[in-house]
């Protein structure tokens, strides 16, 4: 393939040390980007809906009574850190000679994601306990569609990471694993961006 030399796709570029993936990465990563952009539209519409419904509390509690900035801070820190540790995993894929650093960084990332998900679940439980479960009002519905959907994405990313580690165990770091880690990287960093918008629009915007 003549275009193999000219791979300048976004995300981690594995470079010439990994000639086996070069040709496929171009197409695969672009396809995954397209998917992410489609997903971005989903989130955008949920944000617009949330912005419209934030005042539809139907006599129930609103954002300022429900959100706990401390918990959000921990979640945010965990997720931002996980983006960095995933970056380390990407670099390990690119430069390391053995699978060990890659798996190690993936595990750290998973740990941070677990912290994030744990605190998020705690937040949700808190809201439901305060009588602001999703069926309480339009606002609660919009919240519980938007934020948990992001959480579900993170969870899916975790499942994917575990599946990739299992693949490494069986097949070693082959072409499919490399492509998978690259795409999971895009996914992970994309989710970080969505979270930035969530903590801005939902939490900080609600508490401001």
């Amino acid at each position: 393939m003549s275009r193999a030399k000219d791979v300048r796709h976004p995300g981690l570029r594995l470079g010439e040390g990994h000639p086996d993936v070069a040709a496929d990465a171009e197409e695969m990563n672009f396809g995954f980007w397209v998917f992410l952009m489609s997903d971005a539209i989903v989130f955008a519409l949920l944000f617009a809906t949330y912005a419209r419904m934030v005042s539809s509390v139907a006599g129930g509690l609103g954002p300022e009574a429900l959100f706990d900035l401390k918990s959000i801070t921990i979640e945010t820190a965990a997720l931002l850190a996980s983006s960095f540790t995933f970056g380390m995993a990407s670099l390990a894929l690119k430069y390391a000679r053995s699978p060990r650093p890659l798996v190690k960084w993936l595990c750290v990332t998973l740990l941070l994601a677990a912290v994030f998900l744990g605190f998020e679940l705690h937040d949700f439980a808190h809201m439901i306990a305060m009588g602001a479960g999703p069926s309480r009002s339009g606002f609660a519905s919009a919240f519980f569609a938007l934020v948990p959907l992001h959480g579900l994405h993170v969870l899916a990313g975790c499942v994917w990471a575990i599946a990739l580690m299992a693949q490494i165990a069986i097949h070693g770091i082959d072409k499919e694993v490399k492509l998978g880690v690259q795409r999971l990287g895009l996914f992970w960093h994309f989710l970080d961006i969505v979270w930035v918008v969530i903590f801005t629009v939902v939490y900080l915007g609600g508490l401001a």
Partner: peptide
Amino acid sequence: MPPLTVATAMLALDRYLDFHFFTNGSGGN
């Protein structure tokens, strides 16, 4: 397609889990 998926998913949430996206009352719209 995403707007359609969002619309049908919200309608499903309304129907299955008693959300209030499009219901009469309770802040639905």
